[in-house]
């Protein structure tokens, strides 16, 4: 049995989802000859470190009761640089201004010889090529499947299953909150403000929804796609962004009468990066409803491949993280 030691940096919904899925899939993973051992967990309050393996259920319970996982005063930086392990799972919240604290966590990890798996979009939207280069220079893995499309495996699909194809373009819906709002507005003929409020009450939209509804989150994901799939060294500032706040129920109704739905579509291809509301024919594979995400990849050999699935959620995101972790475990 190969033991792979990892740390989880950031213990919110995603970090806890990773812990839960490692717990529930332990037997399944062991059968593949791999033993995942979490030796450290960090959140903003501090760390828990145990080189024999942390009691994950205990950590989740403590986080719930006290608000932090911390049992010692060490920082995430100490955990990443001083505790021996192979993989850090970076799951701190996305910050699009300077990428912190995720960016520094990732740089520290790559500098101290640790592979990085992340769900954090901010550092990738700002410094993708630096991070990738650093990982390559140090012979380390840098994987980020869960940053785009949640559970939908876009990067693994393109880089592995579709290896040999040249990707001509990608179009997709990469923000579940916007998709939910537009779907509800069209179905119920309700104005934007009302549906936004409903989404906030359901926990689908944040109290400050700017990041989602102005297309910023979608743009970050598009930047990661552009860097990873098109090898374009672009950043968030290179995306032409239009959000959904001006869309009226009447516009959706007019579109519907003519067999269209309106979706916030991310487009990459032809050297342009756009996030904007678009008309999608009702029976088109991109016309998915609710909070679903979808990506349609146009390639030279395979033609068009479209995948859709859950774009958010603690366990769904952990699914992508776990696949990255297992990829490293099998190949290192």
């Amino acid at each position: 049995m190969k033991t792979i030691r990892l740390s989880i940096i950031g213990f919110g919904a995603v970090g806890q989802g990773v812990a839960r899925s490692i717990l529930s899939k332990q037997g399944y993973i062991n059968k593949q000859g791999i033993n995942l051992c979490v030796v450290g967990i960090a959140d903003s309050g501090g760390c828990e470190i145990d080189d024999k393996g942390i009691d994950l259920m205990g950590a989740i319970t403590r986080k719930k009761q006290t608000g932090t996982v911390a049992t010692c005063a060490e920082s995430a930086f100490d955990l990443i640089s001083n505790v021996e392990h192979e993989i850090i799972v970076e799951a701190t919240p996305t910050n699009i201004k300077d990428g912190e604290p995720g960016l520094n966590n990732m740089l520290t990890a790559l500098n101290s010889g640790k592979n990085v798996v992340t769900s954090n979009k901010g550092p990738l939207a700002l410094r993708f090529s630096d991070l990738k280069e650093m990982a390559e220079d140090n012979g380390l893995f840098f994987r980020y499947e869960s940053t785009v499309g949640g559970a939908v495996p876009i990067f693994n699909l393109v880089h592995e299953a579709m290896a040999g194809n040249t990707v001509i373009g990608i179009e997709g819906i990469l923000n579940g909150t916007c998709n939910y709002i537009l779907t509800r507005m069209a179905e119920e003929r309700l104005p934007y403000e009302l549906v936004l409020k409903e989404a906030q009450e359901l926990g689908i939209a944040e109290t400050d929804p700017t990041y989602d509804v102005e297309g910023i989150d979608s743009a970050c994901k598009l930047v990661i796609i552009a860097n990873s799939i098109f090898q374009d060294a672009v950043t968030y500032r290179d995306v032409d962004i239009t959000g959904i706040t001006k869309i009226t129920p009447e516009a959706l109704e007019l579109a519907s009468k003519n067999n269209y739905v309106v979706k916030l579509i991310c487009e990459a291809g032809n050297g342009t990066l756009t996030v904007a509301p678009r008309l999608v024919p009702k029976r088109h594979p991109l016309a998915v409803g609710g909070t679903l995400n979808v990506a349609s990849i146009l390639t030279d050999l395979a033609g068009r491949i479209t995948i859709s699935g859950k774009g958010a959620g603690s366990i769904e995101t952990a699914s992508s993280i776990l696949s990255d972790v297992l990829h490293i475990a099998r190949n290192s």
């Binding site: 239009t242 579509i265 487009e267």
Partner: peptide, 14 residues
Amino acid sequence: LLMIEPIRLNSEGA
């Protein structure tokens, strides 16, 4: 005015 155009790459349908 906000102008909503059709999708581009995939506009010919499934």
